[in-house]
Amino acid sequence: MTRLTDPDRLDRIRARATAEGMFLQEAAALEVEDRLNEVNRTFTSPAVVTGFPEVWSRVFPDARIVPDTDTLDLTPGAHDLVIHGLTLHWANDPVGQIIQCHRALKPDGFFLGVMFGGQTLAELRAVMAEVEVARTGGLSPRVLPMGEIRDLGALLQRAGFALPAADSAPRTVTYRDAFALLHDLRAMGEGNAMTNRAGFTPRTYFAEVAARYADSFPAEQSRIAATFEMIFLAGWAPHASQQKPLRPGSAAARLAEALGTDETKLPREP
């Protein structure tokens, strides 16, 4: 089966990333730190899965840094916290990655992942599709497909996490033009690493993309707007002390009493 991501090309793209391009990685790491501060728990054996160790090790200096390869270098049951740091969108098997993180947790350990979601680069996708259809009548894979929050949240349940939760944090970044956006994506280490990526593209194509982008998605001061959606996934390794849903019929009071209303019985079917 053909894999979505070419890992060798992804490594080369990341090797060309720059410190200036790490602002979204840094923002994600700081947001994860803030969210962990809201959890009433002290973690003593954390691990971070990431393709950008310099960024995440600065924010989590006591964590074990693990490359985001297909098989994660995580010891089963060794950690009370596993963070997947803004690289899960490139995984060929995201469910497998989350399952491996789950296995690495001790009972009642916490998983917190962040990844780019489906609204990321929505403007660029739309403009590229319009230009390519107009020029060739078809579409080529140019921007990585990314999951929607409902589907991504379901991955936590499939992986066996208790109390799963998912939420979205979109942000808008403005650029001088589409060429500046594409330059920034390379600086982020987020270039096209898909296995079935488009081949050679003439510069006239990108010039047309830039012109259409400026017309369709303008921002203040003659700039353009680009959306980056971060989706956060959280769940706990099951443990007997955790909250569990009540069994059907086990409520101590009627719903009508709780709402302060009268209960009306429906007639039975004849």
Rank of each mutant, 00 (worst) to 15 (best):
E257L: 11
A126T: 13
R14M: 05
R176G: 09
L152E: 04
V131F: 11
T195I: 10
P164Q: 01
R158A: 13
H183R: 14
D93Y: 10
P53H: 02
H183I: 00
E123H: 12
F206P: 10
I83K: 03
A198Q: 10
D62K: 15
L255R: 13
A28E: 01
G138C: 09
K244E: 11
L259G: 03
S57I: 06
I98K: 02
H84L: 08
A240Y: 13
F110N: 01
R9G: 01
D215L: 11
F179Y: 11
C101A: 15
R171V: 06
A258R: 12
T18G: 03
R125H: 13
S222R: 14
V66G: 00
E263N: 09
P53N: 07
G117H: 04
R142T: 08
L10N: 04
S57F: 11
T204E: 12
W56D: 00
R254I: 04
L36R: 05
A159G: 06
G109L: 01
I13M: 00
Y213L: 02
T50C: 07
R150H: 08
A29K: 02
P94T: 00
D73S: 15
L259Q: 12
N40E: 10
E38A: 13
N192A: 05
L81S: 04
T264C: 09
A198V: 12
F52Q: 03
T2I: 15
E33T: 05
R135M: 13
L81D: 00
Q157L: 13
A17N: 01
M188T: 02
L72G: 08
A219D: 05
F111V: 02
R186I: 00
A219W: 04
Q97S: 15
T264G: 09
P141K: 03
A226L: 00
A169N: 00
A193V: 06
A15Q: 05
G153S: 09
P107M: 07
F179N: 07
A154G: 15
V32K: 08
P7M: 00
L181C: 02
E26T: 08
E26Y: 03
R142C: 03
P164C: 06
L255H: 11
A225L: 00
R171F: 09
P76C: 06
H102A: 12
K106S: 08
A219F: 07
